[in-house]
Design a protein around this nucleic acid. Structure first.
Length: 512
RNA sequence: GGCCCUAUCGUCUAGUGGUUAGGACACCACGCUUUCAAUGUGGUAACGCGGGUUCGAUUCCCGCUAGGGCUGCCA
């Protein structure tokens, strides 16, 4: 793109949380802007009073920051084109709506909801397309004046010209054309004085000098209205890129009822921002090579808006899990451990708790406290102890929350049924005998050389003497973990330390 | 109903006027292995249908079908 000033924006409405589809839209907009030396702007479209939600704006800021999509301008960071919240720009929209009235491109409409509803019902009954019948279009000037003077509720509608073909070139879809006969005389300014999306988006995108409007496909049919508005105002139109939708497994537009759609839901489950970005980037785009693992920096190099697909993509959680597991496995262990700590406290395994909520901790990480105690025993433990546990469990988890759970065996005495100790068809005597040997030889290992290598060196020869080494290794692992599936016995023993290892072996012997 | 958009394995997708239609996730089998995970090897699985154009269409055109979006003083 040759623009000297390339500017994109992400413009969600703060109705509660950051939508996962919104995050992808934001990602594409961010990548496109940043790879072209442009600016990425956040604007809040809060023009629907009925849908205002307390704290929704903050949740959008936090979500974007979590994902690493830092915006150059926005409500909380400022900028030269503010305010970046539409409810603070009401005067602007009013003035622009008035301008259109002056230019005879818009008109006052006094129709009530009931009137409109009745009209629509009749049209549908007659199998006509529901459309405003323009009954207020040619109201006499003096009537308008007196009704306005009486403070009669009214809106401002735009005039749509008859039978014109509006054409535009969409960056992802190519040439798209609509006939204005299909368009309704869109309400621009509502009776409460707030603008509709259509007015606000055009006014703001122009005033904020947005060069490329990136948004999802659902906006495609209203683009001709926007183009008309640019014409009416005498403004140069921006470029449009209508992105494919994110879909539910049943191919409908991704929605709350059919799964989690809030970014924070995924954060709470313990998905890494790196994995989420990687996954989302590939839902609707790919580099055309076989490279599938991407950091945001690499995306900045290879992403291309022109290569974005036209068809919607199903949000496939299995693939996200795979990406997350992959990114967890290759993440720096200290960072991963820090990221896991909120989950361990959430599950009641360790103290201290944070001064803020789990949600905030999960989003904001990393956790800076380095002194902990095990909740159950009040024993002091180090960051390194947690790190060892995390290192072992990251191998078989696909999110942070799972690590938080599977790591439990390092912090609490496991509870299990004695049947778990039996390896295949080994007898009770064989198992008991194995554990007794283990107790004896492990006890002889000096505390300071209690490593998995040493344990292996001492234990394996004993295990080899048995008809099958599983007869010794399985009950050891079961006694230490209390679980059917876990890391290997030597690793667990090393992390647990000599004392706890022996304790757990004794417990197992008692059970038999 | 009207308008519009879309269409390659179950899913995300690569790809071409002539290919054994490639990869990844998931799934299955085998190997490794004390379990699980990871990993290695192999496997099942796709061009929606009908017409054209062409020596030849998955690829280009048209129609159909299917799915989706829009059709609000929601965004």
């Amino acid at each position: 793109m040759l623009n000297i000033k390339l500017r994109t924006r992400f413009a969600p409405s703060p109705t509660g949380y950051l939508h996962i589809g919104g995050l992808r839209t934001a990602l594409y907009s961010y990548l496109f802007a940043k790879q072209n030396n442009g600016q990425f702007i956040l604007r809040l479209e809060d023009t629907d009073l009925k849908r205002q939600v307390e704290g929704a704006a903050e949740r959008i800021y936090e979500g974007l920051k979590w994902a690493g999509l830092n915006y150059d301008e926005g409500p909380d960071v400022g900028g030269d084109f503010g305010p970046y919240i539409q409810s603070k720009r009401l005067k602007l929209y009013k003035n622009h709506a008035d301008e259109l009235i002056q230019k005879d491109r818009a008109y006052y409409c006094f129709c009530t909801d009931e009137t409109l509803e009745k009209m629509r019902e009749e049209q549908i009954a007659k199998k006509q397309a529901p459309k405003y019948d323009r009954r207020c279009l040619n109201l006499p000037a003096d009537e308008i004046e007196s009704r306005l003077k009486n403070n009669e509720p009214h809106v401002i509608r735009m005039k749509i010209p008859a039978n014109r073909i509006i054409e535009f070139n969409d960056i992802v879809r190519g040439k798209v054309a609509y006939n204005t006969n299909e368009l309704d005389d869109q309400v621009l300014l509502k009776s409460d004085g707030y603008p509709t999306y259509h007015l606000a988006v055009v006014v703001d995108d122009h005033l904020m000098q947005i060069s490329h409007v990136t948004r999802t496909e659902e906006w495609l049919p209203s683009t001709p209205k926007h183009i008309l508005l640019y014409e009416y105002f005498g403004w140069e139109r921006p470029h449009w890129a209508h992105l494919p939708l994110l879909l539910n497994p049943d191919k409908s537009k991704m929605s709350k009822r059919k799964g989690d759609v809030a970014v924070e839901d995924y954060i709470k489950k313990g998905y890494l921002a790196e994995a989420m970005i990687n996954f989302l980037a590939f839902l609707g785009w790919n580099p055309g090579t076989e490279k599938e693992i991407y950091s945001i920096e690499e995306l900045l190099k290879d992403f291309s808006l022109e290569k974005v697909h036209k068809a919607g993509a199903i949000f496939n959680i299995e693939k996200l899990n795979w990406y997350n597991q992959y990114h967890m496995r290759q993440m720096d262990l200290d960072k991963l451990t820090e990221a896991c700590i909120p989950y361990l406290t959430e599950k009641g395994l360790i103290f201290p708790k944070f001064d803020h909520s789990f949600e905030i901790a999960a989003i904001k990480g990393p956790f800076t406290v380095k002194e902990f105690e095990i909740n159950q025993t009040k024993e002091k433990i180090s960051f390194d102890f947690i790190k060892k546990a995390v290192a072992l469990e990251r191998e078989r988890a696909s999110n942070l929350s799972q690590i938080g759970e599977s790591v439990r065996l390092f912090f609490e005495e496991p509870e299990y049924d004695k049947d778990l100790l039996f390896w295949k068809d080994a007898s009770k005597e064989e198992i008991k005998n194995s554990l007794k040997i283990l107790e004896k030889i492990i006890n002889e290992i000096p505390e300071k050389s209690f490593t998995k290598e040493k344990l292996q060196e001492i234990i394996m020869p004993e295990a080899q003497k048995l008809p099958n080494r599983g007869i010794m290794l399985w009950p050891l692992r079961a006694a230490l973990s209390g679980q059917k599936a876990s890391p290997g016995p030597f690793e667990i023993a090393e992390a647990l330390g000599k004392e706890k290892t022996l304790e757990r072996i004794k417990k197992a012997i008692e059970k038999l």
